[in-house]
């Protein structure tokens, strides 16, 4: 009958009531949680900080430990590249060998754009060519190791950033897909993140350096170098 069905709550009404009460309780407890300042002292935070801390859930999503896989990936790309040339197959740095990597620079030439004059100058001067490639390979090893171990991470990431951007003349090479550009773009972005976040201060030797010396830059006075941090 219509009248009794209006007065007696149905199963659906009971369920809705339950979820409504649960929802209101949730809001109430959340309000109490923040009102009582269980974790954050909101009075000293700016609006932006309040928003980011509430929304990002600082308890897990912004933990520096989560950057270690990126540190390892970027570091290993460089360490592996350097080891292959300088240690595992040293013929790659021997200009008399057929495996000499100088040939790679020749491959970059056709679409190297503004980098072409530098490449030609390097290739036409054999001493410069060999010196550059040898220095680059050992620098790759150092930067890679430092990133993985978290030693002078910000400086190492800055070096990684320059090297990643530095092989832009090869970005056009990608016979299966956009290979070199994708590698370079991801390494540029990854190096930037590692540099900005000082990721070596967690799970890295930089934590010791930071505790002992605090924040240090390449130079305290020179305008550009004071922005380049060591760890």
């Amino acid at each position: 009958m219509p009248s009794s069905s209006c007065n007696t709550p149905s199963v659906l009404d009971v369920r809705e009531g339950f979820w409504t009460i649960l929802f209101l309780k949730g809001i109430e407890s959340s309000y109490k949680f923040f009102e009582n300042k269980h974790i954050y002292d909101f009075s000293v935070l700016t609006h932006g900080e309040k928003m980011s801390k509430v929304k990002m859930n600082e308890g897990n999503s912004t933990r520096m430990e989560y950057l270690w896989p990126l540190r390892f990936a970027a570091g290993w790309m460089f360490l592996d590249g350097g080891l292959r040339k300088a240690v595992l197959k040293p013929e790659k740095l021997n200009p008399l060998s057929a495996s000499f990597v100088g040939g790679k620079l020749v491959n970059f030439l056709p679409h190297a754009g503004p980098f072409k004059p530098f490449l030609l100058m390097t290739l036409e001067n054999r001493v410069l060519d060999v010196t550059f490639l040898t220095a680059f390979s050992y620098l790759e090893i150092v930067v890679g190791l430092f990133l993985i171990l978290g030693v002078l991470t910000r400086l190492a990431a800055f070096g990684a950033l320059l090297m990643s951007a530095g092989f832009a003349p090869a970005y056009w090479l990608g016979s299966t897909c956009e290979d070199e550009w994708q590698i370079g773009a991801l390494l540029v972005a990854g190096s930037l993140v590692l540099m900005l976040t000082a990721s070596g201060r967690t799970w890295g030797f930089d934590s010791l350096l930071y505790r002992r010396f605090g924040d240090r830059a390449l130079s305290r006075r020179l305008p550009l170098l004071k922005w380049i941090k060591l760890w």
């Binding site: 679409h111 754009g113 951007a165 832009a168 970005y171 056009w172 990608g174 956009e178 550009w181 370079g184 773009a185 540029v188 972005a189």
Partner: peptide
Amino acid sequence: WILGTGQWAY
């Protein structure tokens, strides 16, 4: 950098 080099190369 990413968009610029992507446009330049591909």
